[in-house]
């Protein structure tokens, strides 16, 4: 199979952007948390919770956007839990995050089983339909790739812009970054370190949950246990890869999704001797590789992982 001809296909680019969407949400969410100085290892569980809660909302008769909003609220609630533990009490961000992940994953499986006790094949919902924007959707190439996606994909791109603007161009963003670099100085400026960090973790977690909801409300139409499948961890690697910059994070997510889309195509079309499991490994191996290439010169936010307690140095 000729890989080069793949890049001429619109379908490939379309798939890439679609597959990048949950990663964009997740990476952006994690980036906001880390910029404020909090590592959020709860991401995998928060995405799972968003996945399940968004789907359940729609399954029980709610609207699609209601499902997205509900997922965001669930994500923010888990984020608040993470913030109370790590920001207010200064507990280990590693262990708390893993606890939140376990809680999110197990609770969503539990609730799913409680809502649908006797189901072997999960029922389906009507997911987001691809957009049909006048003029824009009919543009050659750009039209189908960007403007014929679902609304959530468009939202992801808009969020990257908004995040980049708020983080890098507004006083709020400056405060947030300061809290992640030098909380003592931020406090001397009269900023509330704990409040800003809590807010950042909640907003970031809401983003992650919407990324999870994308999986059940737009990419697929049903919920499966174990659906997130490590995407959260990949996002954490992507944040390091992007050097904590929103624009680069978007590029990273797209690049990553491109690899994923290529491996899927090659896997489908080739009758090569390589077993499909090795193709499925590529996303994880690529993430590790991405982490390795950037880690040496990575400029971590200075106060990442460092809890802030008033009057303590």
């Amino acid at each position: 199979m000729d890989i080069l001809s793949l890049f001429l296909e619109t379908g490939f680019w379309l798939a890439m952007v679609r597959m990048a969407t949950p990663l964009i949400f997740g990476t952006m969410g994690e980036l906001i948390c880390e910029r404020a100085g909090v590592l959020n290892l709860g991401i995998e569980g928060i995405m799972a919770a968003g996945c399940m809660s968004g789907w359940t909302w729609v399954f029980l008769g709610g609207t699609l956007w209601g499902g997205v909003l509900f997922a965001a609220c669930v994500g923010a609630a888990l984020g608040l839990l993470h913030a109370v533990f790590t920001v207010h009490l200064g507990l280990s961000q590693h262990v708390t995050g893993l606890g939140i992940t376990m809680l999110g994953v197990s609770l969503s499986s539990f609730v799913f089983r409680m809502v649908l006790p006797q189901v072997t094949t999960p029922p389906k919902i009507v997911p987001f339909a691809p957009l049909d924007i006048p003029v824009l959707s009919t543009l050659p190439f750009i039209g189908p790739v960007l403007f014929s996606q679902t609304a959530l994909t468009l939202l992801a791109f808009i969020l990257v812009g908004v995040t980049a603007y708020v983080l890098l161009r507004t006083p709020l963003g400056l405060a947030l970054r300061m809290v992640g670099e030098n909380p003592l100085a931020a406090e001397a400026q009269g900023l509330s370190v704990l409040g800003l960090r809590t807010g950042a973790v909640m907003v970031g977690s809401a983003f992650m949950a919407v990324g999870g909801a994308f999986l059940t409300l737009a990419a697929f139409d049903a919920f499966y246990i174990g659906m997130v499948n490590g995407r959260g961890w990949i996002c954490i690697a992507l944040v390091v890869f992007s050097s904590w910059k929103p624009g680069k994070a978007l590029l990273g997510a797209l690049l990553f999704a491109a690899f994923d889309a290529i491996q899927m195509r090659v896997q489908q079309q080739s009758i090569s001797a390589i077993p499909y499991q090795f193709y499925l490994m590529l996303p994880y191996l690529c993430s590790i590789l991405a982490l390795i290439t950037m880690s040496r010169k990575a400029a971590y936010p200075k106060a990442l992982l460092v809890p802030f307690r008033k009057g303590e140095r």
């Binding site: 290892l41 590693h94 490590g230 961890w233 390091v240 994880y284 993430s287 590790i288 982490l291 390795i292």
Partner: peptide, 21 residues
């Protein structure tokens, strides 16, 4: 290389499971 071991060990879990698969 200062690569965070949390992420690498987590991601390697998925790789190993695929190898077993």
């Amino acid at each position: 290389l200062k690569a965070d071991e949390v992420v690498t060990t987590l991601l390697l879990n998925f790789v190993v499971l695929l190898v077993v698969n």
